[in-house]
């Protein structure tokens, strides 16, 4: 574990010992900056009962720079594109070193509950959500069942 900043060790420790509800994050044994993440779809959202896999990487500058997070499970969400990239302010210009892996993952989970079609990454999905939210949510549910059922 040589060279790994204390902060990362402490965060990992806490993630393992005291995981946030519905979220797991496990570091790779050969690269402790690389985490396998699972996020449960929030109840009441079209993503409920789905388990979404994601990857999280802590860059060298962390915590001065944000972690890089990407969904690996296909998801029908206006702020998440085909490649799993996530449009979330704290992962970009609103990053602060006071944030942590845990808070970042909780924010992503919250994003699943409240999609924001006004700041889209996947424009077609956003359009769908804006024009016919009910139908879009149906597709989201279908995708969840198809790709994210545990």
């Amino acid at each position: 574990m040589a060279g790994l900043p204390k902060r990362i060790i402490k965060e990992t420790e806490r993630l393992v010992a005291d995981p946030a509800p519905g979220i797991t994050a496990l570091p790779h044994e050969d690269n402790l900056r690389y985490f396998d993440v699972t996020i449960q779809g929030p109840d009441g959202s079209p993503f409920a009962n789905g388990v979404f896999r994601a990857e999280l990487f802590l860059p060298e500058e962390y915590p001065m720079a944000p972690p890089k997070v990407r969904f690996l499970t296909k998801i029908y969400h206006p702020n998440i594109d085909k490649l799993g990239r996530i449009c979330l302010d704290i992962l970009k210009d609103k990053w602060s070193p006071a944030l942590q892996i845990r808070t970042v993952l909780l924010s992503i989970q919250a994003l699943l509950s409240s999609p924001n079609p006004d700041d889209p990454l996947a424009t077609d999905v956003a359009k769908h959500y804006k024009e016919n939210e009910k139908d879009a949510q149906r597709v989201s549910r279908e995708w969840t069942e198809k790709y994210a059922s545990a």
Binding site: M1, E13, V16, A17, P19, L26
Partner: peptide, 28 residues
């Protein structure tokens, strides 16, 4: 007690011993 092991198993279900050991190595 600090739910290192308990939390781990709650979270991840089943784990082999060496995996638990690897995880515990994060503990101070």
């Amino acid at each position: 007690k600090a739910c290192f092991i308990e939390g781990m198993l709650t979270n991840l279900g089943m784990l082999p011993l060496d995996r638990i050991q690897t995880m515990l190595k994060f503990a101070p």
